[in-house]
Design a protein around this nucleic acid. Structure first.
Lengths: 157, 157
DNA sequence: CTTTGTGCAAACGATTTGCAGGATG
DNA sequence: CATCCTGCAAATCGTTTGCACAAAG
């Protein structure tokens, strides 16, 4: 765990970023999570035990990390940005019921043919977003009638 | 053109929506555009000649149209919602330079295998977002070095 | 005539910004 | 020690809401 810390410090330094406790904490937190937290979630998580950082600092840390390519912004819901320390190409799965977001390995769908685009468009890269039910929410998929459509009216408004 | 208007009116009525000049205008505007305008763009466009609608009304019209399934919200950039009267399944192309958004026919990429998802995830639907250069921006793609990376610093900040 | 929509302005929530003090290299 | 970061609070910007008046059916 000490080594992980060192690795993170090296990474930050190698990108020309000053290493501050806050910046370190934000990046370490993102690296340790598989969900794609919002700023608020990161802030809450970091300050759980004792105050480590402020909101504005999270924003600025994320911006710095994003500028050097260590972190990525993910837009899947309206209103909030989520962040991801997985900067490799990958797709996303988004649970329609609980909103959980999960990465999907890039080569799960490698059959996209950008050459199928109409002439004139020059595709460089792409990303697939899958909507569906995650493990927990899919369990009750026998009685889907009530379960599945819960959020489309409440979350939506 | 009179007929188109009637069709729109029929469509709105058939969905149980009252037909008001503003609501009509918003829907007609969306139907006539292939880009995916923001609220501000719709408002500007409608009020170009003379005042037709207010901001709050655009929002409420869009919400009503969305609730009955005539309009869809599209999230591709941070900070703004865009709207689309094409509610059929389709993918999106997003120009990395000018930000233009264009629909891609659903069957352009029909080889996605949702069964490739890891066990436990239950994929229902998906959408592909392609990033690249549109016709206009792709023209100068010979001299891509300077052209392509223009917006990542200006738009981004 | 009843119900629903419109428009204004105020409220809201996520994100950004200005600035003074503090930490990093 | 110069530079860059932090944290607070105020400012911004997209979106939502409350309410009085107007229009739709």
């Amino acid at each position: 765990m000490q080594e992980q810390a060192n690795t993170i410090i090296q990474t930050l330094r190698s990108k020309g970023l000053r290493v501050t406790p806050q910046r370190f904490a934000v990046y370490a937190n993102l690296l340790s999570r598989i969900d794609h937290p919002t700023v608020e979630q990161i802030l809450t998580d970091l300050n759980k035990d004792f105050p480590v950082s402020s909101q504005a600092t999270i924003y600025s840390s994320l911006q710095a990390l994003r500028e050097v390519g260590l972190v990525r912004e993910v837009l899947l819901e309206e209103g909030v940005s989520r962040y991801d320390a997985n900067v490799q190409l990958h797709h996303h799965f988004c649970c329609q019921r609980c909103g959980a977001i999960e990465d999907i390995a890039w080569d799960t769908f490698k059959c996209i043919e950008l050459r199928n685009l109409r002439p004139g468009l020059h595709g460089e890269t792409y990303e697939v977003t899958v909507q569906g039910l995650c493990d927990a929410c899919g369990e009750g998929s026998n009685s889907r009638n009530e379960e599945v459509k819960v959020d489309s009216e409440q979350t939506d408004n």
